[in-house]
Design a protein around this nucleic acid. Structure first.
Lengths: 224, 224
DNA sequence: CAGGTGTGTGACGCGTTTGTGACTGGATTT
DNA sequence: AAATCCAGTCACAAACGCGTCACACACCTG
């Protein structure tokens, strides 16, 4: 069973160490402006205060997301009061959710435990960014520079598969079996239509064209 | 000052009645397979033994959650030994936390008193807001911009579960087991009806539609 | 026991999605 | 330059998935 690593910006950490019975399943650590003080393995959960002594919470939130070591941490923003604008800012800065403060021991544990029980799925739910493109596996949503791309199920699967193998030519056959459509056998030319539809969807969200055609071979998801 | 109503599955109840000096602040009652023997007002706290004479503790836990009258009780699961799998099962069945048994009089009172002195804290964690939507666990009520949403018990639980996992696709199976309805097995299409009813309820309270359908997969509670 | 409420289910209809064939125009080859 | 190849696009029919309704049953309540 994985250990959940919990990071907090306030001084709640020490208080929690006493409170939690099963020390083997959790670690607690202070979260400074530079991020976590030590590197850890396993799922991470960060609680970030809206206001911090040295640094705005939003900025820290962005840094956590930007840093590869903490990019897939679950970030919970602690808002002082219930303001719609702040909530939106928090989510936009990369927070996964938020609580209306002040943060208490039970609030922390409630959330962590609730998620813990559904932990297995979380590993699969990642979110990754490629240039202006963001793919949120959990919400099954893609965005181009914050504006959502309306995708049909198959288009989303296609985009996901392409984005998982960037800078690499994928043959039509690769794509068909990559989307799990071996049965019944599908005409290879159909892939062209998929690509066309996906391109159009990205375009109508104001996006560019990251899908390059490699004549007589297949398609590539281009980075940069 | 509210009275805390404590339910126990074992025979600890009688022993506690003698032990506690300030009878005005607590009631104790036996917890049978049918749930509490009498209905009470105010916060409830149930301690459920892992093994029970007539019924598995997990099952009782689920029933408490399913019953509108006890849905917001704080349920503590009493585990016989420290087993990771069991703890996960307990939480998934709807337990709020757990202790590693055997349950003693002081263990019970420690927990209850700790909570009692932090009543304000409790309210904070049991009520959360997502956009225009407010969910009040204690009052079992939801609001959209101050106007109450009339929800049946099942709809409330559905909304709660969805709101606890926002921005994340929940399959019909997730929702069924998330509401603790694995037994007896439920047709997945039934979830569609739940969603439909919940949407209608929110709508007739003047609300929007935060529930997005993800074709061929499930539903998401959408933030922003 | 009668009336009311909450909930699961089967069935129906509609909108959406999707694979395919045909057509087109540009690129590549001879 | 002609012939060939190949990808982009369109329209369409079939399949699929979802929303919704009515109904039956279980459960409470008086």
């Amino acid at each position: 069973m994985d250990v959940v690593n919990i990071f907090l910006t306030g001084e709640l950490g020490e208080s929690l160490e006493d409170f939690v019975h099963d020390q083997r399943r959790f670690t607690f650590d202070r979260l400074g402006p530079e991020g976590p003080r030590r590197l850890v393995e396993g799922p991470m959960w960060a609680f970030v205060d809206w206001v911090m002594p040295e640094l705005a919470g939003l900025e820290l939130c962005r840094r956590l997301r930007a840093d590869a070591r903490t990019a897939d941490a679950h970030v919970t923003m602690v808002l002082e009061e219930d303001d719609a604008e702040d909530r939106r800012r928090a989510l936009r800065a990369g927070a996964d959710d938020y609580v209306i403060g002040p943060l208490t021991r039970t609030a922390v544990l409630d959330r962590v435990l609730a998620l813990q029980s559904r932990g297995a799925e979380r590993n699969a739910t990642r979110r990754f960014e490629l240039g202006a493109l963001t793919i949120d596996m959990a919400a099954l949503q893609a965005r181009w520079d914050e504006t959502p791309i309306v995708l049909r199920p198959n288009e989303f699967r296609l985009l996901r598969f392409l984005a998982e193998n960037p800078n690499r030519v994928l043959t039509r056959e690769d794509l068909i079996s990559g989307l799990g459509k071996r049965e019944p056998p599908i005409d290879e030319r159909t892939v062209d239509v998929w690509i066309g539809r996906l391109r159009r969807a990205i375009k109508s969200a104001g996006g560019g064209n990251p899908l390059r055609t490699v004549r007589s071979l297949g398609y590539v998801f281009d980075l940069g």
